[in-house]
Design a protein around this nucleic acid. Structure first.
Length: 132
DNA sequence: CAGATGACTCCCA
DNA sequence: CTGGGAGCCATCT
């Protein structure tokens, strides 16, 4: 049709993104995992790239790559995050170990039909501890 | 329905 | 670090 097609799954993606608290970030894969239902990290990225004016309030800047790297088309996404208190290292990557969103609460997820973030590996957890 | 596109992620050299 | 290839998905032409 036009620039605002029949977003079914996209709408859910936007809803999840809006749950990310101020000063936190999440990866595409995380959002996909929360949305579930055949959603993929790519799908999340595509959805964020086509945010309709109706969803202009979606904090798209808080969705970054799994490594904390920003690969958005030259947008000043980093500045927006820094303004929220998110810190970056010398590698231009957000410190995911400290600012990564833990996912929605079990109540909220159940309430809206979403899922909580799956448990992480020991390695990632150890990384968080070491940074603290 | 097939082909193309796109803010991903993982693995290997 | 860079580059290539594969897998996965929604939406548009």
């Amino acid at each position: 049709m036009n620039q605002q097609p029949n977003y079914a799954l996209y709408d859910k993606i936007y809803t999840v993104c809006e749950q990310i608290p101020h000063g936190k970030v999440a990866s595409y894969g995380d959002i996909a995992a929360i949305v579930g239902g055949g959603c993929d990290a790519r799908t999340v990225g595509y959805a964020l790239n086509e945010i309709p004016t109706d969803r202009a309030g979606v904090p798209w800047q808080r969705i970054i790559a799994k490594d904390g790297a920003i690969s958005t088309r030259g947008l000043t996404q980093r500045q927006l995050l820094e303004a929220e208190g998110v810190e970056f290292d010398a590698h231009d990557r957000a410190i995911m170990a400290r600012f990564r969103w833990d996912g929605p609460s079990a109540d909220w997820a159940a309430e809206h039909g979403f899922q909580t973030l799956p448990p992480r590996d020991e390695g990632d957890r150890a990384e968080q501890m070491s940074l603290f």
